[in-house]
Structure formats: C-alpha cells, structure tokens
Design a protein around this nucleic acid. Structure first.
Lengths: 204, 204
DNA sequence: CCGATATTTGACAAAACGTTACATTACGTC
DNA sequence: GACGTAATGTAACGTTTTGTCAAATATCGG
C-alpha cells in the first residue's frame, strides 16, 4: 500500500499520504463521518478519488486511519497525563490539556472522537461503535491508573477508581460539546477548576 | 397547516401530526440530522413524502418542529428543576432527572440536542447552530436561576453563577455522551454523585 | 348528489452519493 | 529507448438523496 522504499516500480505517488490523512482528519472532525462527502475529502486532501481509494481503501478505512492518526497526535497529551505522579495531578493535567486541545487554534474546535460520529444512520453504526470503543478504552486506562493510585495509597481505599475515571471522562466530553459550540478556552478552564473541586481530598 | 377544528374542508388527514412528529424525533435522535433520510423518516412516521412536505414544509422545518417538540416533552424536567427552592437542589434535581431521561426505556439513549447534529456538513451548519443555541439558552436559564440564588443568599457572593451553570451543563452533556454509548443509569447516577461534590457548601 | 378542497398515492426529476473502469502519465529496470 | 508497473485525471457507474407532479381519493357544505 505505502511505497516508500527505494527500488519501487511504477509511477511514484504525487502526494504525502500522512499529510493528506491530516487533512482528512480535519474534515471528519468538522463535518462528521456522514457529513463529509468524498468530494469534501478529496478537495481538502488535494487528491482525486481513485488516489484516495488506492491509498486508503475506501471511505470507512480512511476514517479508521484518521481516527488512529488523531489518537496518536491530538490525543497524545492523554498518555502523558496518565504518567503524572498522583491521581489528582493525572485528573488535573488531563482536563487542562484537554481543554487546551479542544480549543487549539488552527484545528477544529471540539473533539474528533465525539463530533465525527456520535450518532449515525444504521448502515454506519459501526462508526459510532468504533468511536465509543475508543473513548471507553481511554476511560479504562484512566481507571487502571486510579486503581494503581489506590494501591499506592495515593487515593483513599473508599474511592472508586471506575467512578473517578468515568467522572473525569464525563467532564471531558462535556467540555468537548461546549468547545464545539464555541465556548472559549478561559471559560472551559473555569469549568475545569470547578470540576476539580469534586476530587477527594488526600486527608480523607 | 394543522386542521383539527370542525368545519374543515377537503380530505381529512389520515395521520396524527403530533404522533408522527414524535416518531420523527426518535429518528433524528437516533441517527442525526444527516443520517436520517426522508425514507427513514417517512417509514417511521407511517406517511409518504408528499404528506410530510404538506404537513411540515421540508426536512429542515420538520427538524425544527422535532426539536421544539423534544424540548417541550423530553426536556420538561429541566424547567421543573429550576423551580427547586435552593441552588443545590436545582443542580441535583436537574442532573438526576437528566440521567434518568438519558436512559429512558423505549426512547433513544442520550440527548437529542447533542446527537442529532453536533457537527454537520457546511450546508447543514444551521442545524448545529440551532442546537447549540438551544443548549446555550438552557445554560443561560440556569445561570439566571443561580444569580437569583446569590441575591437570595442561597449561594455565597463569591460563587459565579455563570461558572456553576456552565459546569452543570458540561456534566450533563458528558452524561449524554456516555449514555449514547450505552452507559447504564446506575453508573450515570454515580457520576452525578461525584459531580455534586464540587458544589459549594452553604456555610462558606 | 355535486362541486370545492385538501390529502394520499405512486411515479418521477435532478442532484449528490460512494465507488470503479479506462486511458494516460511518470518512474525504475533491462 | 522500450517494457512493466503503479499512480493520475476524467468520466462514468448504479444507488440514494431531497423534493415535486398529477391523478385518485375522501370529506365537507350546499
């Protein structure tokens, strides 16, 4: 499929596949899976349809690649947040970086994994399901991080890691919906301030 | 347009316009504006296209009517929550009733005003904008309720009604995204429990 | 029963959709 | 420089989309 090694035979590809994929990410992000036509995609990617099919398969496979690309790049902050030393820092770092990512200048406002297909027609139900699975995986990773925090004594034994992870992700999703509607960063940050007041105090 | 009074001339309508509208609400809710084709809509409504156009105008006007209908029926709990005597009760009632509404058996999971058009193609940007405006109006109403609470001394003068309203709505939207992915009611309720821990104590 | 009026029905139109066939172009190899 | 190979540009495919037309149907007032 990709053909970067020397000794390649045939006409070389006239575009950068990763760069074009970035454009596709933006279109799916802004318009949703069903709102993004192949015409919209190829126009933004600077290629035409047969090139898209040759390089990515079809619309659905392009979307899956776009989601993977988004997770690697725009969501990289999430993995970094999980590496913070305390559960509170994990939650705070995640939510603050999330708010920043949701309002990044030059990128669509909001969150790809919600906007691009929260609901779809039955024939594209797989898109919604894939996105939901991705969000669920993120929540699970955070839950496991909080379970470690309980074992470490960083969180009190009475705190439920699953509840805390679900809460943080819920706030994050709400921030994304707000951001998609144009709420500016400084207001999202105030929401994060408030949300963190729910965090269990370490002295409990 | 509607023709319920006696003395009507012409062939009487063979369907109940409000009942058909309820079916349309469900289709838009489940599939989104762009994922709901006229075929899906007319099939669910039990009518055919010319009847739809005669009764509602076109797809977009049908959607606007569906949104209004949703606001009147499924969102009725929101107005009731605002009537609670204290700000804390307003927030708690709103979030708990919200969680229940998001998982109401026999209705689509999640929230119409998010699922039906969080993002759209440019030609349907008006749908996203209309929904965002509706959510904004709800947040404003809650803000005004909290402003009254500050005047009443129910909330401390240091609390920001706009921040609190934005926070409650953010949690609500996050709950909706979770509900759309299948999170069951009892887990949403635990999230609400956690979210309410952020609420300012009255003794402050 | 008759004319007026409005709804239903089924077919149709124009455009857009995702996808593919075909001829052309550009490159490495011989 | 011709050959094989793979990507390109154009143009079309069949299907589905939103929206409409004309004829048939049902009910009211007279």
């Amino acid at each position: 499929m990709t053909d970067t090694r020397p000794g390649a035979r045939g006409r070389p590809r006239g575009f950068d596949a990763d760069q074009a994929l970035d454009r596709a990410v933006e279109v799916f992000w802004r318009q949703g899976y069903e709102g993004a036509s192949l015409g919209d995609l190829t126009a933004a990617m600077g290629i035409n349809k047969p090139s898209l099919y040759a390089a990515y398969g079809n619309k659905r496979e392009l979307f899956d690649r776009a989601l993977a690309r988004y997770a690697e790049t725009d969501m990289a902050y999430a993995g970094a947040a999980l590496a913070r030393p305390t559960a509170h820092e994990v939650a705070e770092t995640f939510l603050r970086d999330n708010a920043r990512a949701l309002t990044m200048p030059g990128r669509p406002a909001g969150c790809f994994s919600i906007q691009s297909g929260l609901s779809c027609s039955p024939e594209n139900a797989g898109v919604s399901a894939t996105l939901a699975r991705a969000r669920r995986a993120g929540e699970l990773a955070m839950r496991e991080r909080f379970e470690r925090a309980v074992r470490d004594g960083d969180l009190g034994p009475g705190e439920d890691p699953a509840d805390l992870a679900r809460y943080v992700m819920t706030v994050s999703e709400g921030l994304a919906v707000h951001a998609a509607a144009g709420t500016p960063l400084h207001e999202l940050e105030r929401t994060v301030d408030l949300a963190l007041r729910a965090w269990p105090s370490r002295t409990e």
